[in-house]
């Protein structure tokens, strides 16, 4: 029924199957809730890996704890689902251990910007040649709905029943100021763009940071698909990714959440 009504969806699904991206899926069924933004991230990654023809044997993913942290379980790869907040140093170890691997660090906003926030600047300044995907749903989802470091001031959650007082962090701005050599933002509702950004991130030699806005449909009623469809827009055509100042400016725009590559430069990478 669905496919008959949505022929274009069927067609793109068929292409994906034909192209072999699904070979990158593991046998495990994702445990995410229907509608969770994380599905699209998984799908985009398998497509990106397939397009780049990186064999699963050379893919290593280190992840933290959270709904997002489960990610590697569902991918055909060598995965290490570690402890809360340590995806970055774990992935750093993987890359140092075997520099031939394509290494990812993955985790949520709580994982990467709260408990593990101390690792972010150092991974960036070392320019370790890994890809850090931050799954930002502005909520602690796995623990069922507490406020997170990217939640807006005033957010009502289970631990902030009267509204939170804290200012939200801006991951793109942080990453830029930490000295990341590749800084991009994607929205899991814009699948193709996200996949292409992943490809660019993987191709970048050095520390690639991809901030992914990914709605939690169960616990976050503020940061919804609707909100992001409304506010996410590609960076202006005139944007120069070589310009740090432009990147900083675009990153500070709170009304329009730009997607695309904010900044890229090259500097000796650690591996």
């Amino acid at each position: 029924m669905f496919y008959e009504k949505n022929k274009d969806v069927k067609a793109s699904f068929d292409t994906v199957v034909q192209q072999g991206a699904l070979n990158y899926r593991s046998k495990e069924m994702p445990i995410w809730c229907p509608g969770c933004g994380d599905f699209a991230i998984a799908q985009a990654l398998v497509e990106a890996l397939n397009e780049l023809a990186i064999p699963p044997k050379d893919v290593a993913i280190g992840s933290g704890i959270g709904c997002s942290g489960r990610f590697p379980v569902f991918i055909k790869c060598y995965g290490f689902h570690g402890v809360h907040g340590r995806a970055l140093p774990l992935a750093t170890g993987m890359k140092l251990g075997n520099e031939k691997l394509t290494v990812f660090a993955m985790g949520g906003d709580g994982d990467g910007l709260s408990i593990g926030a101390g690792h972010f600047p150092h991974a960036a300044r070392r320019n370790i040649n890994i890809n850090y995907f931050l799954f930002d749903n502005s909520i602690y989802a796995l623990t069922k709905g507490q406020t997170s470091p990217t939640a807006d001031t005033g957010t009502v959650s289970k631990t902030t029943p009267f509204g939170s007082l804290d200012n939200p962090l801006n991951p793109v701005l942080l990453s830029l100021s930490y000295g990341s050599t590749f800084v991009a933002r994607a929205f899991s509702g814009y699948h193709h763009e996200m996949k292409n950004l992943m490809i660019k991130a993987i191709q970048h030699e050095g520390f690639s940071f991809l901030h992914i806005l990914t709605p939690c449909v169960v616990f976050n009623k503020q940061k919804t698909y609707e909100l992001y469809y409304d506010r996410c827009k590609p960076l202006p055509k005139s944007h120069k990714k070589s310009s740090f100042d432009q990147a900083m400016k675009c990153a500070q725009n709170q009304k329009t959440l730009y997607t695309g590559v904010f900044y890229q430069n090259s500097r000796a990478a650690l591996q």
Partner: peptide, 21 residues
């Protein structure tokens, strides 16, 4: 590698050991 703290140090060790190093 001089890590940012000991939590990171042991993470790096685990990540590297996972690859057989």
């Amino acid at each position: 590698i001089q890590t940012e703290d000991e939590i990171s140090a042991i993470s790096v060790v685990l990540g590297a050991s996972f690859t057989g190093a």
